[in-house]
């Protein structure tokens, strides 16, 4: 039996990339490029993808890629777009491909500037919830209580994950979406849609990371799905300020099912898990009140 999907068969990611086994950020790139297609230029600051793209002169993606310094992705992409337009090319899609450190933290100022100017670019953050490329240090994207190399104390990361999507929403941009590779059809659809919108667009991809989250490399897709099914990660779109959940999950699985399969949450007590369930429930009250 052949299952017909809406996912294009064309591949712009080559098999020879340098990712770890089970890398969520690689699945993310694969589906993003299926949605975006050619006539795309990637701009990538320091992140795992600096390595995954391949050493010079190799390149693991089928579109041009400009490496840029850590804090500069959104500004570099703004200039690249302006340069293309100045040269008469209005149609090439300029896409930032950045990790959570380069987005939530060091790149936030440039990101805010570009969003504020409503630059005609798509900014993608593949969010693996810590500085994975430098060896798992806490970022603004790290969830509360998660273990990282810089939150090794008993309780893990003290602060809640930064609500970056709300920060972007406050910039009045035309499109914000969340995706994760466990739901490839949703992902491809949103990238295709984003490509057709003019102005500043932001997509955040939850990307499981086997070495950083301490899970088996075969669990990546399951965890990506469980993040959604437990409500720990909500799939939504915000179009011109209108919020819409992409998938209603009225009977959410218990958050513990997601947490217990990740070594970074191994130290959690039952009380911790109850607290984290409460945080997820409160977030969903807000989502549902907006839908």
């Amino acid at each position: 039996m052949t299952i017909k999907t809406s996912i294009p068969e064309s591949e712009l990611l080559s098999a020879g990339h340098l990712a770890c086994q089970g890398c969520g950020a690689t699945l993310a790139m694969r589906y993003a490029l299926k949605g975006l297609g050619k006539e795309t230029v990637l701009v990538t600051p320091a992140c795992c993808w600096t390595i995954l793209a391949g050493p010079a002169p190799r390149l693991s993606v089928g579109v041009p890629l400009l490496h840029c310094p850590f804090a500069t992705a959104a500004a570099t992409a703004s200039g690249l777009k302006a340069g293309l337009v100045a040269k008469g090319d209005e149609k090439t899609q300029v896409v930032v491909w950045a990790g959570d450190g380069g987005t939530f933290d060091i790149g936030l100022q440039a990101l805010s500037g570009a969003a504020d100017r409503n630059e005609d670019i798509l900014y993608v953050c593949y969010d693996n919830e810590a500085y994975m490329n430098t060896g798992i240090q806490r970022s603004g994207g790290t969830p509360q209580k998660a273990w990282t190399m810089t939150t090794q104390g008993k309780g893990g990361s003290e602060r809640p994950k930064k609500d970056l999507d709300s920060i972007l929403e406050a910039h009045h941009i035309p499109y914000i979406a969340t995706v994760t590779p466990g739901y490839p059809e949703d992902m491809v659809r949103k990238f295709k849609k984003a490509r057709g919108i003019k102005g500043f667009r932001f997509i955040r991809v939850l990307s499981p990371c086997p070495p950083g989250w301490k899970h088996d490399s075969s669990d990546t897709v399951d965890l990506s799905k469980l993040a959604v099914q437990t409500g720990s990660f909500a799939l939504y779109e915000i179009e011109d300020g209108a919020f819409r959940l992409s998938m209603k999950t009225p009977k959410r699985k218990a958050v513990g099912e997601y947490l217990k399969r990740q070594g970074r949450f191994r130290h959690l007590t039952e009380k911790d898990i109850v607290e984290m369930q409460e945080v997820v429930d409160a977030a969903w009250k807000r989502y549902e009140s907006r839908s």
Partner: peptide, 12 residues
């Protein structure tokens, strides 16, 4: 950089 040519710029 040419948009129709898949090349990396400033790769390692």
């Amino acid at each position: 950089l040419r948009p129709d040519t898949a090349e990396a710029f400033s790769a390692l």
